[in-house]
């Protein structure tokens, strides 16, 4: 058996901490590569982690207009959901649908974070979160398409299928593209990042600073790690198996994402929805062709 039978808390906690640090470094690398492409020196790689820790010692002030327990609880929910996703995905190799659920709850949390503060900017961000959810939902049809191919949605089962039959990337390339767009839309500064676009100050994050922002950034780092992990597992599971290979692959994908983010402008909300729909339809076409 691959993992020890007794998963104790220390084991899982260490995995989560590793994912946190590695994800933070990846996001730092993302910013660095973007800066180099645009001809700037860029921040140090550790900058994103530093930001997260920095917010821990900054003063937290809660707006007078906010709806109170929700304002804090929804940010904690965002964190909790990705911890669950990490436990189900990389550690237990459980059902992919649970990770899809985590993604859906992440969307709900974005919406709630925006609504709870009472500021018009965050409200706009949360409206865009609803709008972009409708675009990303078709992409989440990816699990269905993968299921028709592999007859299982357990991540361990998908890995086993790929070890026997070769990577899904070669069998369902357009579905992989759709999933890649899904990962891209969760990357900071991405063309589809309409939720936190700078045209609406910072989108749903505008009113969140201090400790709460630190917690939120933790959740985002874990989300980035978990989504990258899922992408690699589902489409390259036959080739990439060892943890070190996973890390190298994640770094590679981050560099590709940074290239895309640096070279594309942010698209308008309705265009973002439209483009993501096109990729989802392409994925369905791929399945119909096979």
């Amino acid at each position: 058996m691959y993992y020890p039978v007794n998963f104790n808390l220390i084991y899982i906690l260490l995995e989560i901490i590793t994912a946190f640090i590695f994800g933070g470094l990846l996001l730092g690398l993302h910013r660095k590569v973007m800066a180099r492409i645009q001809g700037r020196p860029g921040p140090p790689i550790v900058q994103h982690l530093l930001h997260t820790f920095k917010f821990y010692i900054k003063e937290l002030s809660i707006p007078n207009t906010s709806s109170m327990p929700l304002y804090v609880a929804i940010v904690l929910a965002m964190d909790a959901v990705w911890i669950l996703a990490l436990i189900v995905g990389p550690i237990l190799g459980g059902s992919f649908l649970i990770i899809i659920m985590c993604y859906a709850v992440h969307k709900v949390a974005e919406h709630g974070i925006g609504l709870a503060s009472g500021s018009p900017y965050t409200k706009l961000g949360s409206t865009r979160a609803v709008l972009s959810a409708t675009a990303e939902m078709p992409l989440i049809a990816v699990p269905a398409l993968v299921f028709f191919k592999t007859d299982t949605l357990l991540l361990d089962g998908i890995i086993n299928y790929q070890i026997v039959n070769g990577s899904l990337f070669t069998q369902l390339p357009l579905v992989a593209l759709a999933m890649f767009v899904l990962v891209l839309s969760k990357t900071p500064y991405s063309p589809f990042g309409i939720v936190w676009g700078k045209d609406i100050v910072s989108g749903y994050k505008t009113e969140h600073f201090g400790v709460i922002r630190g917690v939120m950034m933790m959740g985002e780092i874990l989300a980035f790690f978990a989504l990258l992990w899922c992408f690699i597992t589902i489409f390259f599971g036959g080739i990439i198996t060892a943890p070190l290979a996973y890390m190298v692959a994640m770094t590679g994908i981050t560099v590709i994402l940074a290239f895309i983010c640096a070279l594309t402008p942010m698209v308008a909300p309705y265009h973002a929805v439209m483009i993501q729909w096109i990729f989802a339809i392409l994925a369905v076409v791929n399945v119909l062709l096979i």
Binding site: M101, A104, V108, A133, P143, A144
Partner: peptide
């Protein structure tokens, strides 16, 4: 009314996750 509106988003996404299954 943030908390009440958020419930609607939650309900539609949860229905969606369940309908896939």
């Amino acid at each position: 009314g943030a908390p009440f509106i958020n419930m609607m988003h939650l309900s539609s996404l949860m229905v969606f996750t369940r309908i896939i299954e």
